[in-house]
């Protein structure tokens, strides 16, 4: 196994609805299942509201006493690192009193920076590495990108990147399947405007595949700026460009679009992503960072997806290094 690659697991698969993953015993079980599957690091999710005990630093303080006590508790449960936190500014926040902020709107930048700082400070206290951010809103909200909107987003993430750098973290941009950013050329333009020391990329293998990209080829093109990975498989590609649907989160992802795709994300090895080839490229190009395995938007029981991913990592990916 490549010595510099570190593995972790996401937590977003556990919070299926508002009130799920709200009791502390559920959270304890989730961390123990994660550790039992052989993952001793996690990616937190920047959340909101009273039913998200580990989504906000103030909730962590209320429920665990402090971030350091939380860190000790995680260790008890077999989790030795918090690798990263995923932050999507387009999601509503009860605490910041907004229904979503847009990186493409300069007027929203101060609030995005302030909210990102809250989660980055916690991540830094927890000795994490990367703040993973959603760089653009969904395409259906404003349409395709313009040079102005790309520049605005770059400004936003440069400010966030400078903030995280001061905290010993890096900011990585996570392009999703519904993103306003669609092409490799747009990505090239964005990254040319972003600080190359503070702002990198998080490649989500499923999101990029659904959006029609060849993840391995895309990685080879952008590898110097890819500092973080999320591994999950893609079960279908958005061949009808239904990312353009109004409220594509519902119409395409939840409802499946015209083809009624029942499920978009799958366990590694069950879909379209060539993980062995990708991992080989990562090793070849000297990737030194986290791979966060995800299993969001999968069927119950949640542990099953994680255990199947654990098996794939041990029996396919780890062995491919031998």
């Amino acid at each position: 196994m490549h010595k510099q690659i570190k593995w972790g697991y996401a937590l977003n698969q556990w919070k299926a609805g508002f009130t799920s993953f709200a009791r502390l015993e559920e959270i304890e079980r989730a961390f123990k299942v994660t550790a039992a599957c052989g993952f001793d690091a996690v990616e937190l999710n920047a959340g909101s509201g009273r039913w998200d005990p580990i989504g906000r630093p103030e909730n962590i303080a209320i429920n665990f006493g402090s971030s350091q006590h939380f860190r000790l508790k995680l260790k008890d449960w077999g989790i030795h690192r918090v690798a990263s936190t995923f932050f999507d500014p387009t999601v509503m926040s009860f605490e910041e009193l907004h229904f979503g902020l847009m990186s493409t709107q300069p007027a929203d930048h101060p609030r995005i920076l302030a909210q990102a700082r809250i989660h980055a400070e916690l991540l830094s206290e927890l000795n994490g590495d990367c703040l993973v951010v959603r760089p653009f809103p969904s395409w259906w909200k404003e349409g395709g990108l313009t040079p102005e909107r790309i520049a605005a987003a770059a400004d936003c993430w440069n400010a966030v990147g400078a903030m995280t750098a001061a905290l010993g973290l890096r900011t990585v941009l996570h392009v999703d399947a519904l993103s306003a950013l669609r092409t490799a050329e747009e990505l090239e333009r964005l990254m040319s405007l972003c600080d190359e020391d503070n702002v990198g990329l998080c490649f989500d293998t499923a999101e990029l595949t659904i959006a029609g990209h060849d993840v391995v080829a895309l990685y080879r093109r952008f590898h110097e700026r890819v500092w973080h990975f999320q591994f999950k498989d893609a079960l279908a590609v958005d061949t009808l460009d239904e990312y353009k649907l109004q409220n594509a989160e519902r119409a395409l992802i939840a409802a499946g679009g015209e083809r009624q795709v029942q499920r978009w994300f799958g366990e590694m090895g069950t879909g379209l992503v060539d993980f062995p080839a990708l991992l080989a490229a990562m090793r070849e190009l000297g990737y030194a960072g986290w791979i966060i395995v995800e299993s969001d938007k999968g069927p119950a029981p949640i542990a099953t997806g994680m255990m199947l991913n654990s098996w794939y990592r041990q029996h396919v990916l780890d062995r491919s290094a031998d």
Binding site: K32, A36, C37, M307
Partner: peptide
């Protein structure tokens, strides 16, 4: 559910 119980048992063993 069985998968979660099995994982929690494995955690307890480890």
């Amino acid at each position: 559910n069985y998968p979660e119980s099995t994982a929690l048992s494995a955690w307890y063993i480890q």
